[in-house]
Design a binder for these strands. Structure first.
Lengths: 212, 212
DNA sequence: ACAATGCTACCGTCCGGTCGGAAGGAATGG
DNA sequence: CCATTCCTTCCGACCGGACGGTAGCATTGT
């Protein structure tokens, strides 16, 4: 439970040259990749630092050279995912302002990111409580921004008469977010259901309803 | 990770009488209650048996008298929840066979059970992987029955023309289940949103759509 | 020389689980 | 009615192992 950030100022770090194209930053990446896989499959608590190092064909010493603590690594993973989320939201908000289009876009984007960042997402939702209190608050805040985007678009749709007036934007948002977030439990990239098809079905269900 | 069931054959157990209405079965219950609270708040792995015992004003010795292992307790909690789920499903299936009514009922029931069994639900979804492989399979199977109920009702609605013909029952089911299951992340009984109101909104959104 | 990188060995702590036994009601037998 | 034994419940000390993290050193490129 060590505090303190480990943000290494990339700009001030002189990169060392290693033989035959070896890049020391790769070890960091492979440690993260190793952790992503292990955390996703067995959870944060049941994955030891030793195992993370082993899987990356390194040692604990190397791990603790690159990360302050196990928590620090978790934090890194969470932020990696959140940054991607926020960037994508911004892109959608810069596009069409038709509420229907926006909601459909948001659904599709959410599902895409679940498929793409599967391990990140799983870890994000399952291991949030392992963060320190203040870090948890920060992560929750950023996550709230994503949900606010949903809520804002729906509220906008209601205000402009595109959506039914008796829709409660907060509740509808919870439903939408849940629908999409839950996909991390069952949606696999190689599976029988394509992301686009799922997105289309979800949009149709939510926008037009199931009724014939 | 001990196997073996701890099902004590109640019928063959002679109950002992204790002074002033003391019931030894209360010990078991308070251990479970203690664990429910701690598992929900801090997770299975980060809760020690000692803490569970402490909170119930007992000792580890007492705990291991009533449960075979920590896993055994988790298993007990999971099954407690699943039994309640399956019973409720059966009740709905015995009621109206109008697909629209059934889907609405299922949504309301799902949300109600999330509100009522909040700790159980949280633990169920977050700690499934801590079960042994075969127990996990069993739990997943039972959970599958619940989801099959959703899927069956939607497929039925499509077949009978109540729902649009281009709806994929599998995907719609995933959406519905996700919407409801996700409620464990935000729905609180004492909160500003009543379960019935949320259920009505969800039903309207899914059945009639958002469009004005 | 120096900084970055990675390795080995080690430490203190905590945790799941075990074990022998204490307390005391229930059953038995006289 | 008392004495003995048995069973259930619970206690508390303890064990073995695993885990997060540290310290010191070896190697290598600049």
């Amino acid at each position: 439970m060590v505090r303190a950030t480990s943000n290494r100022p990339e700009s001030t770090r002189r990169r060392q040259r290693w033989p035959d194209g070896y890049d020391p930053e790769n070890t960091r990446k492979s440690l993260i990749a190793s952790a992503l896989e292990l955390f996703e499959r067995r959870g944060f608590d049941r994955t030891s630092v030793q195992e993370i190092a082993d899987r990356a064909k390194l040692t604990k010493g190397a791990f603790y050279h690159h990360f302050e603590s196990k928590d620090d690594l978790l934090r890194h993973i969470q932020e990696e995912y959140l940054e991607a989320q926020l960037a994508a939201i911004a892109k959608i908000e810069a596009g069409s302002d038709d509420p229907k289009v926006r909601v459909a876009e948001l659904i599709r984007f959410s599902l895409t990111s679940v498929a793409e960042y599967r391990a990140h997402v799983t870890i994000f939702y399952q291991e949030r409580r392992n963060l320190t209190a203040d870090l948890f608050a920060e992560v929750t805040r950023k996550r709230g921004l994503v949900e606010s985007a949903f809520a804002g678009m729906i509220a906008d749709g209601v205000a402009r008469g595109a959506f039914r007036s008796d829709v409660d934007p907060r509740i509808a948002t919870f439903g939408l977010v849940g629908m999409c977030a839950w996909a991390y439990q069952w949606l696999n990239v190689g599976g029988p259901l394509s992301v686009d098809e799922v997105a289309r079905q979800f949009s149709a269900m939510v926008l037009e309803g199931l009724y014939a």
